[in-house]
Computed example of a mutant assay.
Amino acid sequence: MSEAASAPAGPATVGDSEFDRDTAVTRRAPGVYDIDLSAGWTVLGAVNGGYLLAVLGRALADALPHPDPFSITAHYLTASRPGPAVVRTEAVRTGRTLSTGQASLLQYDDEGNEVERIRVLASYGDLDALPDDVRTTAKPPALPPLERCFGPQDGPSPVDGGSAIADRLMIKLDPDTLGWALGQPSGKGEMRAWFGLADGRDADPLSLLLAVDALPPTAFEMGLSGWVPTVELTVHVRCRPAPGPLRVAVTTRNLAGGFLEEDAEVWDSADRLVAQSRQLARVRLS
């Protein structure tokens, strides 16, 4: 075997990674796309909402004249499952700097009826055309160094609630938000972590749609357990991320009536706020 053939493979690149393959859509007709939703991005058997948002985001990037999601709002109508799905897109308005579109992801139920899983409305533009000025009071989360944080692979056994998606992500949680995994939740609605894709692919605007919904739910650190399904998720992409791991901070201020909000910030290696999100999620209280 030659030295070149035996050399270890380097990190995956944008456009050539598992994330890219599993979010790739095939255009069947103008505005209509086919995809096979991968079981590799499931949480307790359900397809992760951030992965689904990236699928819809990729279809809209093809359907609209602008390349990058600026703002995308998704309503999760029914739980998606691995397997075939159809994405239908529609351009709502096209302008010089922004275009707006909507998209729906649909699957068939066991009786062969078409069921809408998600509906989104999004505005797209060109992140590279934005001015460089930044005026902000926001600050990056104060995370310990990556080597002092912990992920699912650092425990003696799989973390309760772990899932297939964990094998595809590099998540290293701040120990101060890891009490839930040790049976000692802090009671605070906070979750912080270093984040990346396990194959080393650098972040881009589409993977930011995954990053905001990839950490364990803040409900875990509030002493609750079980699935926390997303009802609505809005993501703002602020700039194209620099290479290197991301830092993600998620907070919840109010849990009432079986619902909570999660506010997320995503920071890149250049200390820039590259994405923000808010979602409404349902929690099991008993």
Rank of each mutant, 00 (worst) to 15 (best):
V55A: 05
A4N: 06
D36V: 14
I171D: 00
G112S: 07
V212Q: 03
P185H: 04
F195L: 05
S123T: 11
A24N: 02
M222W: 00
D132V: 12
P11F: 05
E116W: 04
L233Y: 03
P152G: 00
H66I: 09
L127D: 07
A281K: 06
P205K: 01
V14N: 12
Y33P: 10
T94D: 12
R119Q: 09
D126A: 15
T100S: 11
F220G: 04
R272T: 08
V228P: 11
S163E: 02
N113V: 12
E90T: 14
I72K: 04
V120K: 06
V92L: 14
L224Y: 15
R192H: 11
A249D: 09
G189N: 02
V231I: 15
W41L: 11
A12P: 08
T234I: 02
D268Q: 08
D160S: 11
A219W: 08
D263E: 11
D132R: 14
P82S: 11
P175L: 04
G50T: 03
N113E: 13
V248D: 08
P8L: 06
E116R: 15
P243F: 10
P30I: 10
D213W: 04
R117V: 15
E190Y: 01
Q279V: 11
A85S: 13
M191F: 03
L44Y: 07
R88S: 14
A166S: 12
D22C: 11
A242M: 07
L130R: 13
P243D: 03
G223C: 12
E114R: 15
R88C: 04
